[in-house]
Every structure is written in structure tokens, then in C-alpha cells.
Amino acid sequence: MTTTAPHHRSEAGQGAAGGLVVLAAVMLFVAGVLDLLRGVMAIAEDDVYVAAPNYLFKFDLTSWGWIQLVLGAVAVLVSMGLFSRATWARVVGVGMAGLLIIANFLSIPYYPLWSLTLIALYAFVIWALCVVRRGD
């Protein structure tokens, strides 16, 4: 009969895990604010966006702006939950980052470089939130 000792994590490991959650919270907050600003630009029908006449996914710029605005606002709220290390925020943060990756994929024809940059940021947020074990 073998007994196993309880698995204890080192302080360095716990610090790194906590640091990843904080980094993910900061990245989600910054990217959410940037999506908020993109939504405001689209609602105001700013000249920043280009027309993509032959793209499969066509959206009205104003309605697309409202979608970006709402998703960005929710991302900022979830990042606040991540700062308090709430478990619900980690789960919702992964889901929100996934939705925002899809939203930014759909906006590639209108603002390609920035959409790809935000996709990379949100992919990093998903990684940082998933690599941390429960309870860290």
C-alpha cells in the first residue's frame, strides 16, 4: 500500500501562475478598451474603415460597431473579475476571448492589421487563462 503525499506547489510556481492571470487580465482589459474604441469609430461611421465589396460576411458598419462596443465592454468587466481572481471570470474570460477572436476575424477585410493584432492578443489571453491550474 502506497501513500502519496499531498502535492504542494512551490512559491515560485504559484507566483508565476498568479502573474499569468494578472497579465491575462491586463491584456483583456487593454484589448477590450481597444474594441470599445473600434465600436465607437464604427458607430460614428468614421473614415478609418475601408469598404470590402466582395467579402462573404457583409455587415452594416453601425450594427458592427454596436457589436464591437458591447463585446469590448463585457471584456473590460470580465477583466475586472480577473483582477479579483474570481473563478467565474477565468471561465467567462476564455469564452469572451473566443468570441472576440471570431468578431475580429469577421472584421479583417475592414481593418486587417489591427484585427490580426487583436486576434493574437486574445489568443494569448486564452492561453494564459487555460494554463493556470484551478485554485492558483
Rank of each mutant, 00 (worst) to 15 (best):
L28A: 05
W127P: 03
Y49G: 02
L99K: 10
R133A: 09
A103G: 11
A44N: 15
Y122Q: 09
N54K: 09
M96D: 13
H7C: 05
H7N: 13
V94D: 11
V48A: 13
Q14Y: 14
F59Q: 08
Y49S: 02
D46Y: 11
P109Y: 09
V131E: 02
G32L: 00
A25Y: 03
V48L: 15
A103N: 13
L129E: 01
A89Y: 01
S115L: 00
V26E: 12
V94I: 11
T117K: 06
N104C: 04
V40T: 13
M1A: 14
I67G: 14
Y111M: 14
C130Y: 07
Y111W: 08
V70M: 03
A44V: 14
L34Q: 08
M80I: 05
R133K: 07
G135V: 00
I101H: 04
A5Q: 15
Y122H: 11
H8T: 15
P109N: 13
H8V: 12
G98K: 09
P6N: 05
I43N: 08
A25I: 04
P109H: 07
M80G: 06
A25P: 00
W114V: 12
G81L: 07
A128N: 00
S63C: 08
A128H: 02
A51Y: 13
N54Q: 09
P112E: 09
H8G: 10
L121Y: 09
I102W: 12
T117A: 14
Q14N: 13
A17T: 00
A120R: 01
A73V: 04
L121H: 07
A120M: 05
T3L: 02
N54V: 07
D46E: 15
A128Y: 01
A17Q: 04
A73D: 03
P53M: 01
M41S: 15
S107F: 15
A128C: 02
V48D: 12
G13P: 05
D35L: 13
V94G: 05
W88I: 01
V22Q: 01
D136Y: 06
V30H: 03
Y122G: 05
A73K: 03
I126Y: 02
S115Y: 01
K58E: 04
P6T: 02
L100N: 15
V70R: 04
G72P: 10
D136R: 07
G32Q: 05
A5W: 06
L77D: 01
A120F: 02
N54D: 07
V125G: 04
I43Y: 06
M80W: 00
G93V: 02
D60E: 13
L20I: 08
A97V: 03
P112H: 09
Y110I: 12
D47E: 11
F29G: 11
G98L: 10
A12D: 13
S107Q: 15
W114S: 07
L34T: 08
G135W: 00
R85H: 06
T3K: 15
Y111S: 14
E45Y: 10
Y111N: 11
Y111A: 11
R134Y: 15
R38V: 15
W127G: 02
R90A: 13
I43R: 01
A16K: 03
S63N: 13
G93F: 03
F105V: 06
G95V: 08
S79H: 02
V21R: 00
V132Q: 04
L116S: 04
D136W: 09
A16P: 01
M27K: 06
I67R: 14
S115Q: 01
A97R: 03
V70G: 09
V92F: 12
L121G: 04
